[in-house]
Structures are given as C-alpha cells and as structure tokens.
Amino acid sequence: MTEYRVLGRTGLNVSPLCLGAMMFGWWGEQSPEESARIIDRALDSGINFIDTADVYSQGQSEEFVGQALARSGKRDEVVLATKCHGAMGEGPNRRGNSRRWIFQAVEDSLRRLGTDWIDLYQIHRPDPGTDVDETLGALTDLVRQGKVRYLGSSTFPAHQIVEGQWAAERRGLERFVCEQPPYSLLARGIEADVLPVVHAYGMGAIVWSPLAGGWLTGRYRKDREVPESRRAGLLPDRYDLKLEANQRKLEAVEQLAVLAEEAGHTLIELALAFTIRHPAVTSAIIGPRTMDHLESQLTAADVRLGDDVLDRIDAIVAPGLTINPGDAGWQPPELADAGLRRRP
C-alpha cells in the first residue's frame, strides 16, 4: 500500500484504508498484546490512519491503541482519530455534545491514548439537544489549546453537515473537515446526499462498515448457517433473516459473491475496493478482530475495479439505495418518537 490521499483540504495525507479499533478491548480482542500485533502489522503494511472512540469497550480500545503506539514508538507517524458523544458512565452529563462533556471527554481520551494531542477529534453522532454552535465553540477552543488538530463529524445527515459548515463560517469557528458515514455495497444511501455535500464543501469522507457489519465477508450465504455474533444480538433488525429487508440483502450478497469471483477478487476485496473508488471517499475503515481478518482486507487497497464491474454492481444494488434502512447508522428522533410528529 503506497497510495495516500489528502483528507479534504487539510493537506493531511492518510491511507485509503483506515484501521478501525472498535474490536480492540472487551467488545472483541481482549488481549492488548494481540491488539498491538494487529496494529503493528497494519502500520507495517502502509496504513498510517487509526480510528477509535471513547465508547468502544468503554475506553479500553483507546487504552490498547495508546499502549501499542507507545511500544512501537510510531505515534508521530500515525494520524490518530477518536470520537466523543456516547455515554461513558452514569449520569446525564457524561455523554452528548455539550461544552461541559466535550472538555471532560477529550481529557479522558488523551489520558487513555497516552498522547498530548489528537489528530482528528470527531463528534460521534448528532445531539438534538445541543446547538452546533455550542459544540463547535468547544471544539475550536481545544484546537487553539493544541489538544486537537482537526475536527470531524460522524453519521450526520446532510442537512446537519451543511448547518455545521454555516455555523463555523458565521461565527469564525473551526469547521468539521470530514464526515464519517456508513457506506457499503448494501448501504449506498449516502450517495444521494451526504457524499455530494461532503464533496461540495471540500470535506473528506471516512466511511465505516464497508463490509456491512460482516455481511460482505462471505460468512452470510444462502447455503450456510447464520453465524453467531455479538452484533446480531445487539442489532437484531440488521441481522434477523426473518425480516424481508435482510432476505433482500442475502440475495444481493449472493449476486455480489458471484461477481467478485468472476472478476478475480474475493468478496471482501470487491466490497472495500468499491467504497474507496468513490471520488468523495478518502478512506474506508476496516475493523479486524483477528490477524486473519486484517490480512484478508489489506489486499483491497491495491484492487482497482473497472467500470464494467461497477456497472454490474449498480445493477445488483442501485446507486443511492440502502437495502435495510437499519443500516443507515442513525435515524432522526422524529422517526422514533411519534410525539415529535404530532401537534398536541
């Protein structure tokens, strides 16, 4: 892997595959030594971009990443990204996008990561109860204090991405330089709005779940038993094969697997190479739990899909289509709470 791409208009060069650390810690790989071995292999392959979040294993992922970078002595070579927003303990103020919590969360992340600065600090999800001006104001102070270099959002809808850009310009604040949305062969909804907006504002896009939460690894096939996974227990709507949307996903996977084989690639290579071919996408986040997982994904960085293959993908899953809306990563609260849609 020798190609590097500029993150938006920052001048910061990152690899097209980003090592996601969500599965390091008690959510996945519980050995800090094995996690470090995976991190070292990724860095040796040319990956220079690592993404984690405070909420992953309630801070343990950040600890494992920090320990690995300290042992390797490669902190200065790595673009290190993390996030805040999710609940980190009891109490109503240990979560969200308020100034109070952001200031506390960044100090906690710096301590766990064992570093003096975070290259990319991202807001993990929108917070309907917090004005974006409040959030950007707090983040701007962190940039000016030298604790954070760049700012990003994650899983924001297109209109809130625009709102954030306008707020930054209006108030003279640091802006979000990138967005981290879900994107895969089975979840292409962001092609209709988020990616065009990101491109228009000169932002980078770091896409998560390019393997659709495991659906595009080859484990989900019609002739195989449904694999057991922790994610299936936590997110049944995305994995329950009794649901019509998931049956449609399975049908698409079967066709995509055939296409991958005919094109001379693994399904994993097809899935990852597809996401990083989009002109608005900077990097795709891979989230290996084992060394074998990592090795099966590294080769995708060198795969370039021809237009004929991309046309066949479009015929299987139409551009802009997310087969199961549950794979979109976030829904407006108005969809979940009927009271927000009905005048009293």
Rank of each mutant, 00 (worst) to 15 (best):
A284P: 01
L256Q: 07
A257W: 04
H293M: 08
D292F: 11
P227K: 15
I276G: 03
K242E: 15
E261C: 01
Q255N: 10
L250S: 13
E225P: 07
Q297I: 00
L243T: 02
V253D: 07
I286G: 00
D223H: 14
Q255D: 12
G287F: 12
A257E: 13
G213D: 02
R224K: 15
S229D: 09
S283L: 01
P236G: 04
D292Q: 13
L259H: 05
V226D: 07
G214H: 14
P227W: 15
R277C: 03
L241W: 06
L256E: 10
L234C: 01
H265G: 02
A257L: 01
L235H: 11
A257T: 10
E251S: 15
I285L: 09
E251H: 14
E261N: 11
T275A: 11
Q247T: 01
A273F: 08
L259R: 00
E261T: 14
A252Y: 07
P236W: 05
A284Q: 05
L234N: 03
T266C: 08
L259K: 04
T290R: 04
L267M: 03
K242Q: 15
L250F: 11
I286E: 02
G264D: 11
G233A: 11
I268Y: 06
Y220I: 00
E261P: 13
V258A: 06
Q247S: 00
K242V: 07
P288T: 12
E262L: 09
A245F: 10
A271K: 11
E269R: 10
L241D: 09
Q247G: 01
A280G: 10
A284G: 02
A284Y: 01
T282F: 12
Y239G: 07
F274C: 08
P236Q: 09
S283N: 05
H278T: 04
L256F: 03
T266E: 04
H265V: 14
R219I: 00
A212H: 12
T290Q: 02
G218M: 02
R289D: 15
W215F: 08
D237V: 12
Y239C: 06
S283I: 04
S229Q: 10
T266Q: 05
L243P: 06
H265S: 08
M291K: 00
H265N: 09
A284L: 09
T266G: 08
A284R: 02
S296Q: 10
I268C: 02
G264R: 14
H278Q: 01
S229T: 15
H278I: 10
L234A: 12
I268P: 02
W215A: 09
R219V: 00
E225G: 11
E262R: 15
V253E: 11
V253H: 14
G264T: 12
E254Y: 08
W215M: 10
K249S: 13
E225D: 14
M291V: 05
T275C: 13
T266M: 08
D292H: 13
A263E: 13
E225Y: 05
I285S: 04
E269I: 07
T290E: 05
E225M: 09
T266K: 04
E295S: 01
A245R: 12
L243K: 12
E261Q: 15
L259S: 01
R289P: 05
A232Y: 01
T217Y: 08
W215I: 06
T282Q: 06
E254T: 14
L270T: 01
Q247D: 11
Q297G: 00
Q247E: 06
G287P: 07
L241M: 13
A280C: 07
A284D: 05
P227V: 15
I276T: 13
I276W: 03
E228D: 14
R219M: 04
